[in-house]
Each structure stands twice: as C-alpha cells, then as structure tokens.
Amino acid sequence: MLETCDLGHARHGHDLLAAVSQRFAPGRLHAVIGPNGAGKSTLLRLLAREWPATHGQVRLDKRPLTDWPAAELARRRALLPQQHGLAFAFSATEVVALGRLHARRRTPPAERAIVAAALDSAGAAHLAARRYPELSGGERARVQLARVLAQIWDEAEGPRYLLLDEPTAHLDLTFQHACLRLARAWAARGVGVIAVLHDPNLVLAYADEVSVLRGGRLFAHGEPRTILDPALMREVYGLATQRIDGSDGQRWLAVARD
C-alpha cells in the first residue's frame, strides 16, 4: 500500500503541496486532476521520492519511502515523466532496456523478450530499431511508457505502482485511449496506477477513483461519477459544464460555450 500522511512540500517558502493524506490502493486506477499549478506533478514526484517531503511522509508497505534502498524501490514503482528529453542517440530498444537496470537478472534472450513485449504493449514495436532523437513527440512518449513498464515488468515482493504524469499529453486520440486501457489492464493485474490527467472525460471513462487538487491541497476525493459534476467543475476550474449521460451508462462533462 502506498499512502501519504499529512504530506507537504515547500520550495522557496512557498507551499507547492500541503496536508495531503491519501491511500493509493493497489489494483486501482487512481486519477489526479486539478488546474495548472495545483500540485499534481509535485504529488507524483513526492510519491516517487524524486523530491523529499518537507512535511509529513510517504509510506510504501507501512515503511517510510526514505528508508527504501534505491534498487528495491526501483522494482516497486516507476514514474513516467512529462518531458522526454534525451539527446543521445540510443535506439528505442536501448532506451527501454535502460529501465531494466535494477530488475532481477535474467538471461539475455529473456531480457530481450521483456523489452520487446514492453515496446509492443506501448504500441511502439515498430519503433524498436529507430534512434530515439529521430522520433516525434508522441512516438517518444510511447517509447518512454515502454521503458517505465519494463522497469516494473517482473512481479515484486509487494504491490507495484505505476506513476504517470500526464501520460496522454503528446498522444493522438487513439493512443490516449490505448494508453488508459493499458493502465486499466495493469491495474487489473494488481498494480496501483496513479495518473495525472487533464480531461475529466478520460477520468470518468477509466478511473476507479479521483483526487482533485486545488492550490496545493486535496479538494475532493472519491469515485469519479459521484464527485465530478458541474458544481465541482465551476468551483475548481471556474468553468460552466453540462452533464451528459449516454444510453450505455457512460457519462460526460461538456464545457458550455459561455
């Protein structure tokens, strides 16, 4: 179980995130939404131990994140960052293989099979031999997704976590949905998926639960269909929205023109 306890992070005397206490259960797709600057990426960085908590703590399996050895932590959680800068000319396959640095050693053919499978599940099998700097933004995002999947491909001693920072940002419509379907499939296998998203309709369609951040604080948390409504959208985003219920039980929030 990954959980935060009164978690906060301040930089230059300014609170980027404060007083977040939240449990992220394995086997669920947990969405994090909120306006720009609400602290979504900060939360993900704290959950991944990229940044230290300046207040409170993050615990994995009841053990503070700061106590985890780096290699062990690397087998338990992976983070897909927003930016994918890499100027050196690795091939896509090599980039994905970098994610396997601390994975349990296997034979080279087994390693190659895992890298190929990760590329395939991220929809990037056809990019395997291409050089990374020659790829488009969306292609890079898929290769990086494959790298992150390869990192936590093996079963570990406890539940694994997949942290996705705006995974759909550079992707076309087809791959946005493919990416979230993949996240659902991983959640179904017992992996805790925590994804920062912007589109409330993607949250409604795919997420099991959602945390809404505003101004560095947790504004609301719960099941998407119960908390994402026009009142919350007005309160958090200042937007007028209309709820649309499809005949198949699907629900949408449409932004009104004025």
Binding site: A70, L73, A74, R75, L86, L98, L101
Partner: peptide
C-alpha cells in the same frame, strides 16, 4: 557504465530507475 547510460535519460529519471 550501466548507471552512466541511465544518467543520459536525465538525473530524475536515473534516480527513478534506482541510480544513486
């Protein structure tokens, strides 16, 4: 060498993969 390879991804990314 393997850790230096990971470092080419970026320092934060290398740390996520488990590099000190």
């Amino acid at each position: 060498a393997p850790a230096l390879n990971a470092l080419l991804l970026g320092e934060a990314e290398a740390a996520h993969i488990g590099v000190d």
